[in-house]
């Protein structure tokens, strides 16, 4: 895992936003008419792959720190295809004031459009306090692959406090809505109902209108991971694991990307 450059200046918290717009380029591919980032967000265009535009977020400074307010917006217009990744894990760190950081991601995917949202894990470092929200609005025929991984503490350290809400609406109606809260001050977070001593938790969510006719069957993927259909054309692999490596392996063991959705490869 790489370390982002140290933060210049001594501001108690920064406000920064980044925005990606992907749109069909008229030649069967996807253009990126908007690719804007400031502060800790440096967005890089990667070499396109078939109809898909690829963007990587490079951490340009340590963030989020306590007190930071970060916003990331992605719009995938009708018929476009975008793959988003990050070059390293995002590490939530304590700030100077003890104030929480916020990280809000807003995503819209249009009709016939496809989004792969595959960031590296979020690591909640000791003493940090991060409130993250991710809100996805899908058009009726939009397709989505979204991975979310949280690692509670760097190696051998206790975690900070983390709350992460993931809300997905499809055609204006709720499809998935979960808030996960962990760390000091969160009652019961490490008990047998929530994490039971595990330090890595994540999910891989796939939404595809094709699931309407061929929903996946629920299936256990080992002792602490499952593949399950949602109450809509979508499926999720949910897992807890001792560490990030085993979490990633569990999330990928559902073969959701291979057989459930050929387009996802």
């Amino acid at each position: 895992m790489t370390t982002a450059p140290a933060r210049p200046g001594l501001a108690p918290g920064i406000r920064a936003a980044a925005r990606i717009v992907a749109a069909p380029d008229g030649r069967g591919g996807t253009a990126l008419p908007v690719l804007d980032g400031a502060g800790p967000f440096a967005l890089r265009r990667l070499r396109a792959y078939g109809p898909e535009a690829r963007v990587a977020l490079v951490g340009a400074m340590s963030a989020p720190l306590g007190g930071d307010r970060l916003t990331l917006t992605a719009e995938v217009e009708d018929g476009a295809a975008l793959r988003f990744s990050t070059t390293a894990a995002t590490i939530a760190l304590p700030g100077r004031t003890g104030a929480p950081a916020t990280y809000d991601t807003r995503i819209r995917v249009g009709d016939g459009a496809t989004l792969h949202w595959l960031p590296e894990p979020l690591i909640s470092a000791r003493g940090s306090d991060l409130r993250s929200t991710t809100r996805v609005e899908l058009a009726p025929t939009a397709r989505l692959v979204l991975r979310e991984e949280q690692i509670l503490g760097r190696a051998g350290e206790p975690p900070g406090r983390l709350s992460a809400r993931l809300t997905v609406h499809r055609d204006g109606r709720p499809l998935f809505d979960q808030e996960l809260c962990y760390g000091p001050g969160v009652p019961g977070w490490d008990g047998g109902a929530v994490l039971g001593g595990h330090r890595a938790v994540g999910q891989l969510l796939v939404v595809d209108p094709a699931f309407e006719d061929a929903p996946v069957a629920p299936r256990a993927l080992g002792a602490t991971a499952v593949l399950a259909p949602l109450a809509g054309p979508a499926a999720v692999v949910s897992a807890v694991a001792p560490d990030g490596l085993r979490l990633r392996k569990a999330l990928e063991s559902g073969d959701l990307l291979a057989d459930g959705a050929m387009w996802a490869i």
């Binding site: 809505d177 595990h198 499952v226």
Partner: peptide, 18 residues
């Protein structure tokens, strides 16, 4: 409305159902 979730409850519910 709250959306609090417990990963192990959700995962183990499927394991238990089988």
């Amino acid at each position: 409305l709250p959306a609090g979730a417990a990963p192990l409850l959700d995962i183990m519910a499927e394991v238990h159902a089988a």
